[in-house]
Amino acid sequence: MGRKLHIEALRYNPLDPSSKPYMQSYHLEEHPSMTLFVALMQIRETQDPTLQFDFCCRAGICGSCGMVINGRPGLACSTQTTSLPEHITLHPLPVFKLIGDLSVDTGTWFRDVGKRIEAWVHTNTPFDENAQETRMANALATEIFELDRCIECGCCVAACGTARMREDFLGATSINRMARFHIDPRDNRGKQDFYDLIGNNDGVFGCMGLLGCEDVCPKSLPLQDQLGIMRRMLALHSVKNIIPQSLRGRLEKKCCCHEKH
C-alpha cells in the first residue's frame, strides 16, 4: 500500500476576524501517480471543504497553482507526491496578496506590472485585412515563442530576494516579457523606450543577481540570460553620451560567455 502522507498547510482567512494564521495537518494515503492537485482536492472533498487553493488546468499550463512546497516555490499540479518526503508543508507564495490559506492574488499583481511595463506590441501600422501577413523568419518566431512561454505563475517572483524586500520590483517575469518585445520586429519601441520602462531600480538594475528565479521556473525559461541581455543593452544606453561611440560599439558586440550570438 502507499505511504501515509502528512500534509501541513498554512491556514488563514483574512476576511474572518476570528482567524489566526496556523499550520493545519491532514493525513491521507498516497496512491500511484498522485500529484499535489489530487491530494489537495481529496482533502477538500473528504476532510475540509473550507481549505482554499487554486487550480485550473491541472496540467502545468495555466500557472494557477503556484505555492511554496517544502520551502520551494513550484506548481502543485505538476508535483508528484512521490518526489517529496512523507511530510509535506505547503505555504502560499509570498509577495502576492493573500486571499486565504494557499490562495494568492497573482492576477492583480500581473495586470498591474503588465500596465507598468506596457506589455503589448507597440505599433502604428493599422491592420489591413486584404494584405498578406508581414513575413518573419521561422527562427525568429521560435525565439519569440520561447520567451512567450511564461505562464505567469509567480514562482520566480516568490523566489526573488529583491521582490521580497521591495514591493515595486518588477521581477524576472517582467524583464523576460520585455526581452520578448525587444526582439519582436512588430514592436517599434527603441532603446530609450525600454530604458524609460525598466532601466531603473524597479527593473533591470534592481536585481541583486541571486537568480532564484531561474532555479524555480517551472517552464525552465532562460531568465538569467534575458536579464543579462536587457541589463547590458540598457546600461550601455544609459552611458551613450559619456563613452565614445567606437568603444560602445565594441561593448555592444561583445557578449556574455553564455550567450551564443
Binding site: W120, V121, T123, T125, F127, E133, T134, R135, M136, A137, N138, A141, T142, I144, F145, D148, D184, R186, D187
Partner: peptide, 8 residues
Amino acid sequence: WMGVPWSR
C-alpha cells in the same frame, strides 16, 4: 499583426 509568433 497583433503579435502572435506563428510558426513560419
